[in-house]
Every structure is written in C-alpha cells, then in structure tokens.
C-alpha cells in the first residue's frame, strides 16, 4: 500500500493522535448514546407523563448551558471523588476524569440533544394510526415498533447519529473542563487546535485540523438533511 493511502501519513504524529482520538471518542459516544437517544426521543414524542417538561429540559440543557458548566458538573458527578464517579471506581474500576473514556461521556452528553431532536422529529412524522392498525392486525407493541415504526424512522435515526457524531468530533468546552488536554490521552481535535493556536506561529499547524473540522461539520449537516428528507419520503411511500 502506498504511503499516501494511510491517513496517518497525511498528518504530523501530534495531529494524527488528536484526529484518531477524536474519531474513537466520537464513535463510542454515538454508539453508546444511540439506544438511550431512541428511547428518550420515543418518550418525548409519544408519551405523556408527569415531569415531561423537566425531562425535555434536562435533555436539551447541554445545548444552552455554557459547556464549561456542563464539564464542571460532569467533574462533580463523575470525578474520582464525585458522587457517581467514586462508585464507578470502587465497583468497576472505571475512572472517567482525565481519561479518554471521560471524553466519550462529555461528547455524548453534549451531542445528546441534537441526536434526540432529529430522532424525535422522525417519530413525530409517523402517523400513530399506522401503529394502531398494526396492533389490530395482531402485532404486540414491541413488534409494532420493530416492524412499522423503526423501518419508517430509520433514516431519521441515522440522521441523529450523524449529527451526534459530528458534534462529538467538535466538542471542546465540556471535554477540556472534564478531562483536560493531555496529548495522546485526552487531546481531541478541537483541543489540539486550541493548543496550536496558543503557540506563536502555530496557525499553520492548526490549519489542516481546522479544515477537517469544517469538512466533518458540513458533511454531517448535508447528510442529515438528506436523511431527514428520506424519512418524509418513506412515510409518504414514494
């Protein structure tokens, strides 16, 4: 295989470490939050329950809250002495603070509102009457979900995942607060850009990473828009 074919050769080792870490963090953050995202979207789109506004607010909070606050709250909760973190450490030996796993959590929390929003809109586009019809034909609620709802909203789920992935690639504030900016450990792509820009003449080094960020974001937006249209087409059956 020629050298140029390996992405690692496109970058300096520092840059590549940051890009590879961001990819890993984003994949994990998206994959782990997707089931909860689908569940939450379904809850918000289809169920009426006491405290729905509070759940809705909590889900969307990271979108509005200063990211540094989200990161600080994560540190309080999931730090090694945090009220959840200490048990994760004791029972599972899982430490999140200042580890790449913590970057996964931070990225997942920050990307969650975007994911839920896209999937929720897909759920809301599905006519509950179709699900009722499936029920009268003998399908249990789980089967209705698997055989009618899920196939209809699948593009919407992918759209949500793509947006969440792109958001996770770009997450900076909460990540740097919660897991700091340790090269090779927690230095994600935006953190690397930030570090380069702190050094006089670092602009040129940051340039390629900036381009990548723009490309990822733009692609994700176009793709998710396309997929959202696919939901509408699918539901209309054209």
């Amino acid at each position: 295989m020629p050298d140029w074919f390996t992405p690692a050769n496109w970058f300096t080792p520092d840059e590549w470490r940051a890009v590879a870490l961001s990819l890993r963090v984003s994949v994990w953050a998206t994959a782990l939050s997707l089931p909860l995202g689908i569940y939450t979207a379904h809850l918000l789109a289809r169920r009426d329950f006491w405290g729905k506004h509070i759940v809705n607010g909590l889900v969307h909070l990271p979108l509005i809250l200063p990211p540094v606050v989200t990161g600080y709250l994560l540190l309080l909760a999931f730090g090694r002495k945090g009220f959840i973190g200490q048990y994760l450490d004791q029972w599972f030996g899982l430490v999140l603070a200042f580890k790449w796993t913590g970057a996964v959590l931070a990225a997942a929390v920050m990307a969650f509102p975007l994911m839920v929003r896209a999937i929720r809109m897909a759920f809301e586009a599905v006519d509950p009457k179709l699900e009722q019809a499936a029920g009268t034909l003998g399908a249990s609620p789980l089967w209705v979900f698997l055989s009618v709802t899920l196939p209809l909203i699948l593009p919407g789920i992918i759209a949500g995942a793509v947006l969440a992935f792109a958001k996770a690639m770009g997450e900076f504030g909460a990540t740097i607060t919660f897991v700091s900016n340790i090269p090779g450990q927690t230095q994600t792509l935006p953190s690397a850009i930030y570090t380069f820009l702190q050094v006089p003449g670092g602009d040129s080094q940051a340039f390629r990473l900036v381009l990548i960020s723009i490309a990822v974001a733009m692609l994700a937006l176009i793709l998710s828009e396309f997929l959202s249209r696919a939901v509408a087409r699918r539901i209309k059956g054209t």
Partner: peptide, 11 residues
Amino acid sequence: YVFQDARLFPH
C-alpha cells in the same frame, strides 16, 4: 379492522 383511511404500511 378496515379503517376509513385504509392505513396501508407505506414501506
């Protein structure tokens, strides 16, 4: 149940 609006599955 045959509904007024058929309700066939579009997919």
